[in-house]
């Protein structure tokens, strides 16, 4: 999926505390541990993609074919499982929040965190291409937060989370909310080690979105329909949207909320509290 959008290599991601400008550049631990190979490619991008078909004269010398049978996303998946093991050992519940830009992920967190912080310690990892705006908003709530700026990247990956968690040092028995880069495509492919994927969709977007972005809704465990206070003013059927979501993700948990008015938030919070007890 990602190869459609021209996003850059993961090594460009920068971790920031709220309010930190562009200067604070951590030494880049490109690979978790002992990874010897370096990303020396990728900074090109001036469009030399024109030789799609190579006509190779093998000059009569046969090359040696070596079987690999290796998953392309193996590195990410292995690291995601390491993250998952760390989270489990610390009795943490980790949620990966996903949506298009502007569906209300950060606003949802701004309502969710104050309601839960007396029950459980909360920490947040914010993913955006640029700025610490979201981390500043979450930081204002007084909970630990790290901003991951992905640069040209369009999604968070397991390595970014691994680095961010080392910096964040989340408490045992805590809730960690990861707010992914606003994008309904690529983040669906990259496991971060989370327990649950929470997709947020708003009523200003179109009730066929689950069918347009089926991979995301298929991967999701929870779907939260936001901005329901605007339902009278838009051409959007909550029922149709729910049906569409259920068609591509048969066992999705569905919530309808207005983060602005607080309508429906209790159901979501109650469900989350129950889920926290089970972790």
């Amino acid at each position: 999926m990602c190869d459609t959008c021209g996003c850059g290599p993961e090594g460009e991601a920068v971790l920031r505390r709220p309010g930190e400008g562009s200067g604070h550049n951590h030494e880049h631990h490109h690979h978790a541990e002992g990874g010897g190979h370096q990303h020396l490619h990728g900074e090109n991008g001036d469009g030399h993609a024109h030789h799609e078909v190579h006509h190779h004269a093998h000059e009569g010398r046969a090359g040696r074919k070596i079987g690999m049978e290796q998953d392309v996303l193996r590195e990410n998946n292995l690291l995601a499982e390491r993250n998952r093991g760390y989270f489990e050992a610390k009795h943490m519940l980790v949620l990966n929040f996903l949506s298009s830009p502007g569906s209300g992920k950060t606003s949802l967190l701004e309502k969710t965190i104050p309601a839960l912080r007396d029950v459980v310690p909360v920490a947040v990892i914010e993913g955006d291409q640029q700025t610490t705006n979201d981390a500043d908003r979450i930081g204002a709530l007084g909970v630990p937060v790290i901003q991951v700026n992905t640069g040209t990247g369009c999604h968070l990956d397991a390595l970014m989370i691994n680095r961010a968690v080392k910096e964040l040092e989340p408490a045992d028995n805590s809730l960690l909310c990861i707010e992914n880069v606003g994008n309904l495509v690529c983040p669906a492919m990259f496991d971060l080690g989370e327990a649950l994927k929470v997709v947020v969709i708003s009523v200003t977007e179109g009730d066929d979105k689950p069918l347009k972005y089926p991979y995301m809704f298929h991967e999701a465990d929870v779907c939260i329909l936001n901005k329901t206070d605007l339902l009278p003013y838009v051409e959007f059927s909550a029922e149709t949207c729910r049906e569409n979501a259920m068609r591509v993700g048969h066992d999705i948990e569905w919530f309808e909320v207005s983060v602005k008015t607080g309508d429906g938030l209790d159901q979501w919070l109650d469900w989350l509290k129950t889920r926290l007890e089970r972790r």
Partner: peptide
């Protein structure tokens, strides 16, 4: 693109 880079990394190694 990051998928293409993952492939290049893996095959080069």
């Amino acid at each position: 693109m990051s998928v293409a880079l993952s492939i290049v990394d893996a095959v080069e190694e």
